[in-house]
């Protein structure tokens, strides 16, 4: 067992403990706005991590994830608004549907290699956006507006404080990151990376690459849809441009690239850097007009990709290696 780490991962457990205790530290998350930023960071980190399963670990870049995110959002929204139910079953059904749609869409798309897969996923966002715009049953362009209900975990809405949402999104974060941690250490994780690094090689070693890609896609879409359900609950409404848009799709991609593709902490680091920038720029520069956040996203991405294509995780690794070398040199 000399080459394996079986020890407890203190970094991960410490991070979870910190995040769980964060609202209890007086003064830290006092204003509603800082709470909002913290919730957004965890939500977008979870979204990016869901995308990372397919795009980072498996190397299949999808610009279609806002569709799955949207289906999840509509799942919760339909349950609450159309059927007057609690959102939980809707979220679950939405996630299952998203996974099913993902598999149906990607089955033909995975036959396309490299960039063509990415291009095909672009088109899917447009198709679903238009479809939901004119689909009367799901509220069309007006979307679905939540009416007032009791607040609390059953209905998953809170009006007075954002603390409930914070713990809700923390659970989501725990689920998505927990799944990826499990994958990373088990066969599926090795197969995902093998398919990314060389499909032919993977197949020569008995890996059914088509099946592995479909599994990654289904899992990724399922988790993205759960994030969407949270998003609908958090905003008390859902409409097509909010969820099913290229803007939204880009966030899945860009946060992960910024943080580090195919790394466990990358999505969290990417979100922790981009989301505060996005929220504060929107709060303070909002008067200039929409899209300031995306301009900042774009600039950051250019800087990162030029300087370190492996993202923030790449920068951290670089520093680590340097530190190790200078330590060894000093001895």
């Amino acid at each position: 067992m000399k080459n394996r780490k079986r020890s407890v991962d203190f970094l991960w457990l410490g991070l979870l403990a910190f995040l769980a205790l964060l609202p209890l530290i007086p003064g830290l998350l006092r204003s509603s706005f800082t709470q909002h930023v913290a919730i957004q960071i965890l939500l977008y980190a979870s979204m990016a991590q869901a995308w990372n399963i397919l795009g980072g670990y498996c190397g299949q870049v999808s610009f279609g994830h806002s569709v799955f995110f949207g289906i999840g959002a509509y799942g919760a929204g339909m349950a609450v608004v159309k059927y007057g139910m609690i959102p939980w079953p809707g979220a679950f059904i939405g996630a299952v549907l998203a996974a099913a749609v993902a598999v149906v869409i990607s089955y033909p798309c995975f036959k396309l290699k490299g960039h063509y897969f990415a291009i095909a996923t672009f088109a899917i966002v447009e198709i679903f956006n238009r479809l939901f715009m004119v689909w009367y049953w799901v509220g069309g362009a007006l979307g679905l507006d939540y009416s007032f209900t009791d607040q609390g975990w059953t209905h998953f809405v809170w009006y007075e404080s954002k603390r409930g949402y914070y713990f809700g999104v923390l659970l989501l974060f725990l689920l998505v990151f927990g799944v990826v941690r499990w994958i990373e250490r088990n066969r599926l994780g090795f197969y995902l990376r093998a398919v990314r690094e060389g499909q032919e090689t993977a197949e020569s070693l008995g890996v059914n690459s088509a099946k592995v890609k479909l599994m990654a896609m289904a899992l990724s879409a399922f988790l993205a849809a759960l994030c969407g359900a949270f998003f609908a609950q958090y905003n008390y409404r859902v409409d097509p441009p909010m969820v099913m848009s290229l803007d939204m799709s880009m966030k899945f991609v860009l946060i992960t690239i910024l943080g580090g593709l195919g790394t466990f902490y990358g999505p969290l680091l990417g979100a922790a850097l981009l989301i505060p920038l996005q929220e504060y720029s929107r709060a303070f520069l909002g008067g200039i007009g929409g899209g300031v956040d995306l301009i900042i996203f774009g600039l950051l991405i250019i800087i990162v990709v030029v300087y370190q294509p492996r993202g923030i995780m790449g920068i951290i690794d670089g520093i680590r290696v340097k530190a190790k070398r200078s330590k060894e040199g000093g001895e």
Binding site: A194, G198, G262
Partner: peptide
């Protein structure tokens, strides 16, 4: 190919195909 490998007939490549961004151990683990 993957079915052949599962049956027990496995090949190597003339032009080496390392899974580059994975360690030697990870390669063999696959």
């Amino acid at each position: 190919a993957y079915e052949m490998a599962r049956l027990g007939a496995v090949r190597t490549f003339q032009v080496v195909h390392p899974l580059k961004e994975m360690t030697v151990l990870d390669n063999v683990l696959v």
